[in-house]
Design a protein around this nucleic acid. Structure first.
Lengths: 210, 210, 210, 210
DNA sequence: GATGAATGAGGATTCATTCAT
DNA sequence: AATGAATGAATCCTCATTCAT
């Protein structure tokens, strides 16, 4: 945003859609060019290489994935937790449009696939892995902060906020992962059910924990 | 095992190690040949194609991953759960050797990487996805069965066995996934801590749940 | 001609020369690249595959082979027949240059070899066979038409024009075929002698046939 | 026959059938092995190389093609000519079985295809070309001899026996060639019609020629 | 800003051939 | 006599990248 040309952004969006369509191992610049509706070589005006483009695209992905949360500290912590869960397990067209002008049709599938491919690639590329690491760190911190707020406000029990945040985050990641990589249709629902029970458990009166 | 030629098995093992070293997107038959110490073309005596080999190798991976559990029904359910957790989060050399004669040096890293790559590929290949789906189904059923045994024996509270099994399984998968894809050194430990607390929670006297 | 890129045409010409040099069974893209003086992969900018290129080249071959005959209906039928015979049995540099900028050195040998290879390949490829079939059909029709004209003008006896055309055409094809496939140096001359006698026979006064 | 092992002969027959099925450019030892029902490497016990086998097979082909004609000089020359024509344009199962124990199903198609492929290959291989040259020479001589006999017996006009033999032979070759290489269903019939008229013409009373 | 021609390295795969058994 | 494991060269083709326009 700002100085970056419109074309540069459109290339990232094309890369996103192409990745969701073909996967990392089978993603050619031709595929991206087709998604872009332009000659693939144009990309070298804006990026140093294919990997440079994809790294840049990862940053857009992160923005969609963690969302531009308002994080109004005065919000109801429980509602905030539910909203975060929902944004990750069920990303909305709107959410993607805040970052990309031309989102793919099936947002949930596309986001899951791109997540899986980018994370898998992070195994082999340090720059990617720094990014994935940072994303998980931010998300955990956001969730932990919300839990801490809940504890402070007396809404939640006095749990270990960091560990509970991890707990929720691990389940969220796995929900996204499993949607793309298995045929278990109900996995995401089950993840959601489990997270719900964790949130409910957080609210149990402090008396219960004694 | 048995009728299959030694070479065929050695090729699968080479493919496993090569995949752990290069990743799916960057895995060439040359890489596999190098790992095998033989000419890559030999592979076409035993497999129809690169993908056929990798699918066959996935089946070996599954055997290592879910393990040949003794599942003695008389075993302590809690111990069984801890053992399953440990086998998945911390696979042992021995475990791999039960399936492969020539395992890679760093088993934990290799297993995590191969898991991530094979699961990611399952997004694009139906035969792979059938396998990943089946693996998760078997593991959930194994865990659920253990929990049911625990409930029947009065060791565990009367929880929803299937949902609890899902809960544990999701965390296990994510533990393996995160080891390969992020720099969060302590993620696996945290997964283990969380699963431990779930197991401990299972043991809370039935009186507590009333 | 016209809109088609110069390179595309040059590739077809290189394919023609390479085919005349190596034969179908032993024709590699490397050979074509060498003949072209360029990297063989360039070919995929202009053609879908090796076979696509060769099919396209066959069309050029056909143009040379059947020639762009002026077919001036007022011409002497006997002269026309002799010209057709000559063009097929003894193709001239000029004739090839009307279609290709870079013809091979020995035109007669090259044309015979390419004919044999393309026709042989037509056994196995429907698209090729459609082309060879069409070529023979056109040539027969051209010859038959000339004969009919001769009959109408009273120059020729009232023979079965189609059958006589077949007769001449079969001999022509065999003349071309035999030059490439045997050591019989004089075969083509003998074919020509025979065809000459057929033409002479056509001119026998109608009185003779009564 | 005689000292040659049965296997050696069976390999030649397999090569014949495989060639009729795949064509020279696409004929692999695997194809021959499949046709043989044995491991392809067996062939190196009996032949020096693939080409050596095919050259040897060509010799069998020649025997079928020119036939083991009894050439009883007392036979009717016209009948002999018609028989030769028929044997080449319409080879019979019986004819092939005199040379091969396991002939292909559709003899006419197989013979035409093998002819075309072997002759085309003769363009590039001297040993093959010697053979093709010899075959055509023998056939011409056989036909010429028959014609001379006819002239001597007063059955035929005093034509140029060699040239007429060429004439008939060229048409025969082209008949076989065209069956494999074009879709012109009636070409062979037309060749036969033309040859018939040549034979009939031979019989015209000597008075006519004066 | 954008194109498309061109390259060369590398991809999977096939194949004729050899060799030990 | 026959097999099948193994090889390495060669095959077609794809791809990321560069460069002139």
């Amino acid at each position: 945003m700002g100085t970056t040309s419109g074309t540069e952004q459109r290339i990232r969006e094309a890369a996103f859609r192409a990745l969701a369509k073909h996967g990392y191992a089978d993603l050619s610049l031709t595929d991206i060019g087709e998604e872009l509706g332009q000659n693939p070589s144009i990309l070298y005006h804006y990026f140093d290489s294919k990997d440079d483009l994809l790294l840049s695209m990862l940053e857009d992905f992160v923005d969609i994935f963690i969302g531009k949360r308002s994080t109004e500290s005065d919000a109801d912590p429980e509602a905030t937790l539910r909203q975060t869960t929902d944004q990750i397990l069920h990303p909305k067209q709107m959410q993607v449009e805040a970052v990309m002008n031309t989102p793919p049709a099936d947002i949930e599938t596309a986001m899951s696939r791109v997540f899986v491919e980018l994370w898998a690639h992070a195994t082999w590329d340090d720059e990617f892995r720094n990014e994935t690491t940072q994303v998980e760190r931010s998300l955990r911190e956001m969730i932990a902060q919300t839990i801490r707020t809940g504890i402070d406000q007396g809404d939640f029990r006095q749990v270990d906020a960091e560990l509970t945040a991890d707990h929720i985050l691990f389940l969220l990641m796995q929900g996204v992962h499993t949607r793309a990589t298995t045929n278990q249709e109900t996995s995401v629902e089950r993840v959601q059910t489990i997270i719900d029970s964790i949130i409910v458990d957080l609210r149990r009166s402090n008396a219960d924990t004694s």
